[in-house]
Design a protein around this nucleic acid. Structure first.
Lengths: 351, 351
DNA sequence: GGACGTTGCGTTAGCGCTCACTCTGTGCGA
DNA sequence: TCGCACAGAGTGAGCGCTAACGCAACGTCC
């Protein structure tokens, strides 16, 4: 790497404030001010400093800045799993909201495992974030304790049915499950089952499942048939579970799926078995994934306001950082009714 | 926040090494050693320090560690767009490989825009990462310059047809485009078109497009019909583009799509127009998305080895950090042949 | 014309940690 | 008896920056 052109040994990454200062002939702090509070300098000096900054390709060292400064420029975000999954759009909206204020997002993953979630939270806290956001509201005590003791704003996303550590923005998943079942019942399906991935610690999925049971009970029907698994929810899982379900409960004519990916496999398996959707069986998904409107039949699904949740989370974090109090809010969702529950008629025509 | 129980004012986030040291009655450095090099301490002392560490819930401050230490624990990753998109699995595999060595991944997004990519790279370099990984191999000069001057390992992912800054691991996208077209031609489709999102700076998409043209030329056929747009590639775009395409070129009987999401919309629009797939028109996608095997007809698609690319990127980064030289490697991909190009017969039976 | 802001910059003291070095005591061979 | 290697712990400097304060030189106003 060699030596810098004019001023001391070359630091590990790029120029330092001290080098810029030496080049211009001012103190280090003056250069810092030129960046952070330009209006406190004479325009002429400011120009010279700006030129030197540019010549040396100065990139502020945010590590040093965070250590010295009052507040960090990082926000930690923990999701169950960004990948093959439903939280990407939430994180994108969150990130967009925070980037505008120059906050960096640092991502961690729980993989639906409380121990790994605690590990991810601990790892992120090591970077001393200004705030944290995480998916879910029912957490392991270690997680709640660490987050509570951190003394920073914490926003729990996606779910609202629980006790928030600080702030929360999400949906009522029991109500979603109820709505899935009620929709099927309203369309004349009587034997409703729940199919999908049901990991031990995916509290949201359990709540939706409970909601289905509630709706059936309210309609004077029995418990829903269950075909669930702790494996990740993908089409193949849906196919296997529905095969197993129909072997045990051939009378099932309505299926509430825990995710759209599972529903894709359910539709395929039903087709392979000669069960017509929606005439023989109605299927409703959760998540409104990209392909759902393109399937045959198009999949009826619950659409969560992902972008809104991410945007609101960013807003709450920024407000909390400026002294506002904690907030807890529930966001609205809707059911996109498509052909997979349109018994006897076509609800949405293909393009 | 108040004062700490035993030793100095409460710092901004959690206990410090100095507090732990004061509690045990040793020097700060000894506690640091207990964490970084436990074998250099007496077991008895180590036990007492471990107890104090635990009691105070000490979480190492990685900001301070990075500033003081020789090397950073961060790796910067820039993708076009993680969301609605194809890079999630790559990043997941990359992250898994790096997390094992205690590296944190920091994500940035280019949104297929060179200026935003430069901004993302600059922002990430501000955190003084130990290495960088980014999607694509054809970058704006500013990006190449910044990365070259940073003096850290740089791995360019996903594409290989260009000059690497340091290391690269990806696919030959021209060859992919050729394979898409050759597959269609081999199935008897003669009038091949390209449909999909073709952003000005998405070099990979342009290369695949060029590959299609090459294959047609080699077969003595003319230029492919094009129906492209700078909008993001989703099913609706596919539907609109194919409508426009068929209006201009009703003879088209083979469609190579730039992404599976676009292909979904293409299939839906063809169905709505009464064009039978695969009998009248063959459709091949790119990306092998989750739903592709569940569509009717199931979509033939190019499957990129996402996990392998991510894993190899992690391996190269770790090796480079330990002194190994730069590497450039091309990974293999394949075409999953399904019903959408199975003219006259069913290739893959539904489950 | 002396007390009092104001503007514009320099000085200084850390943030919490790592790393190179120094120091102390112990064991052991010559 | 002395020297000397070595394990085990302490000391001090400094990473690059921010923030609080210091301090000239220049108005401003009674």
């Amino acid at each position: 790497m060699g030596q810098g052109a004019g001023g001391g040994p070359q630091p590990r990454g790029g120029a330092t404030l001290a080098q810029v200062a030496a080049r211009v002939g001012v103190s280090l702090n003056t250069v810092s001010r030129a960046i952070r509070a330009p209006h406190t300098l004479r325009p002429e000096l400011l120009g010279r400093i700006a030129a030197a900054l540019d010549e040396l390709n100065y990139v502020p060292n945010r590590i040093a800045g965070s250590l010295a400064g009052t507040r960090s420029a990082l926000v930690g975000v923990v999701v169950s799993s960004l990948f093959h999954s439903e939280f990407a759009a939430v994180v994108e909206a969150l990130q967009t909201g925070l980037l505008a204020r120059d906050f960096q997002v640092m991502l961690g993953h729980s993989h639906y495992d409380p121990a790994r979630e605690a590990g991810a939270v601990r790892a992120l806290l090591g970077w001393r974030p200004a705030a944290m956001a995480l998916v879910g509201i029912d957490h392991h005590r270690d997680v709640s304790r660490m987050l509570g003791e951190a003394g920073i704003p914490v926003v729990q996303m996606w779910d609202v049915g629980g006790e928030a550590i600080d702030s929360a923005v999400g949906m009522d998943h029991v109500a979603i499950g109820r709505a899935q079942a009620e929709h099927l019942l309203a369309r004349g399906y009587r034997h409703v089952a729940v199919v999908g991935s049901l990991r031990p610690h995916d509290a949201r999925a359990h709540k939706r499942c409970r909601g289905v049971a509630q709706a059936l009970a309210a309609a004077g029907l029995g418990e829903p048939a269950l075909a669930t698994s702790a494996e990740p929810g993908d089409p193949d899982l849906g196919g296997r579970l529905v095969a197993e379900l129909l072997a045990r409960h051939p009378e099932v004519d309505g299926i509430a799926c825990n995710s759209d990916a599972v529903a894709y496999g359910v539709l395929r398996a039903l087709r392979a078995r000669g069960r017509r959707v929606p005439d023989d069986v109605g299927v409703v998904g959760f998540g409104d994934a990209e392909a759902s409107a393109c399937l045959v039949p198009a999949l009826t699904s619950v659409r969560p306001p992902r972008a809104a949740i991410g945007r609101l989370t960013a807003e709450i974090i920024l407000a909390r950082l400026e002294g506002a109090g904690p907030r807890q809010l529930e966001v609205a969702w809707d059911i996109l009714v498509r052909d997979s529950t349109a018994r006897g008629s076509t609800v949405s025509a293909p393009i």
